[in-house]
Design a protein around this nucleic acid. Structure first.
Length: 315
RNA sequence: GGCGACAUAGCCAAGUGGUAAGGCACGAGUCUGCAAAACUCUGAUGCGGCGGUUCAAAUCCGCCUGUCGCCU
């Protein structure tokens, strides 16, 4: 079998410095960046998503960023398709693909080569199931799941997560297969990628939270309010409405809450998001963690990352 | 200085004599087509302090402390 495609993956919570590290690594290793971020894909959502500007990109090509209008939905399946295409394209030009982003599900699905089924989602059925959930409660759906797919019933009954349970039921009715079968099928093909994973972490969580709070203040100075005003005035998809920044500031524009209250909310939601990201990435034992608050400066951090990568790239 | 109200977990807060609801935050975790999503778990031997009444007090009484309001 042919050698696997080498790829660098930079992960970490929001505001940990992934963007900067990825750009510097791209300069050193002659790479191009593929963003694995479910919100930076959207055009017009620049400040709140902390999308790098021309200056920060330093001439390094960034793929899967800033290409989709906010009224369009997006999903993991689309991401893995798009990203695979990007990787082939970058590699064919002799460059090194560098995946950088905080959307853990996107990163893992791509690197593990998860195969999503061909069938499209059935939004209508999904909506009907949500209505049933709201009317009859979660137990009703859990029972339904027991009838069609006992293994996933066992797996999902404790969590009581309507979203996961509804998807399992929806999947069965749209494809005739159970989500359990699909999950097995999705892992049959080995991943064509050999990822060198760098994680940006913090020994002291408070340090990360300080950075998040500060970054929100900087966003406000950069004109976040004007951006929010514009985005809130346009059509948003199911995916883009979820972006942190816009919904938190909305009550300020509608007069329901003071600006200060909204800013506090925005900071808190961003901190909570960072915590969830950490929980996600912690599970991956292949990640080489570098602790931002333990390094004297960025150069040292970069140096360590370069060492790790060199060892794997040429070792 | 006088009068009154209030004082319950990090914050908000229910509870008016029978053995401390709930929400938020924090922390931990789950995760296969909306993932910046959705969801799960988790906190007070104690209710400002000290006495008193009672079989029993966060709940009633007194004093003290603090906060707020009104009056002078």
């Amino acid at each position: 079998m042919t050698e696997k495609q080498k790829i660098i993956s930079v992960v970490g919570p929001t505001a940990s410095g992934k963007t900067r590290l990825a750009v510097e690594l791209a300069k050193i290793f002659d790479g191009e960046i593929i963003s694995a971020d479910s919100m930076q894909i959207y055009t017009g959502m620049q400040i709140a998503t902390a999308k790098p500007d021309k200056d920060e990109m330093q001439g390094i090509p960034h793929h899967l960023m800033d290409f989709l209008p906010p009224d369009k939905s997006y999903s993991v399946a689309m991401f893995t398709d798009d990203a695979k295409g990007c990787i082939s394209d970058i590699a064919s030009r002799g460059k090194l693909p560098i995946l950088a982003g905080g959307t853990g599900l996107y990163v893992d699905s791509l690197l593990q080569n998860i195969k999503f089924s061909e069938e499209e989602r059935d939004e209508e059925l999904s909506r009907r199931l949500w209505i049933q959930y709201e009317e009859n409660g979660i137990e009703y759906l859990i029972q339904k799941l027991l009838e069609i797919d006992p293994p996933s019933y066992e797996r999902l009954k404790e969590g009581k997560n309507p979203k996961r349970i509804i998807r399992a039921i929806e999947f069965y009715y749209t494809t005739g297969k159970t989500i359990t079968e699909q999950n097995e099928m999705s892992r049959l093909e080995q991943s064509p990628y050999d990822a060198i994973k760098i994680g940006l972490g913090f020994t002291d969580r408070e340090k990360l939270y300080d950075r998040i709070n500060l970054r929100v203040d900087i966003m406000l100075e950069k004109g976040l309010l004007e951006e929010v005003r514009q985005v809130l005035g346009s059509e948003l998809s199911q995916t883009s409405v979820k972006a942190i920044g816009y919904k938190e500031l909305a009550p300020y524009f509608s007069g329901e809450n003071s600006l200060d209250e909204c800013i506090q909310k925005l900071k808190r939601e961003t901190r909570r998001y960072a915590k969830r990201q950490l929980t996600w990435f912690k599970r991956d034992k292949e990640i080489n963690w570098l602790y931002v608050d333990e390094e004297p400066d960025f150069e040292t951090l970069l140096g360590k990352a370069v060492q790790i990568i060199k060892g794997r790239l040429y070792g």
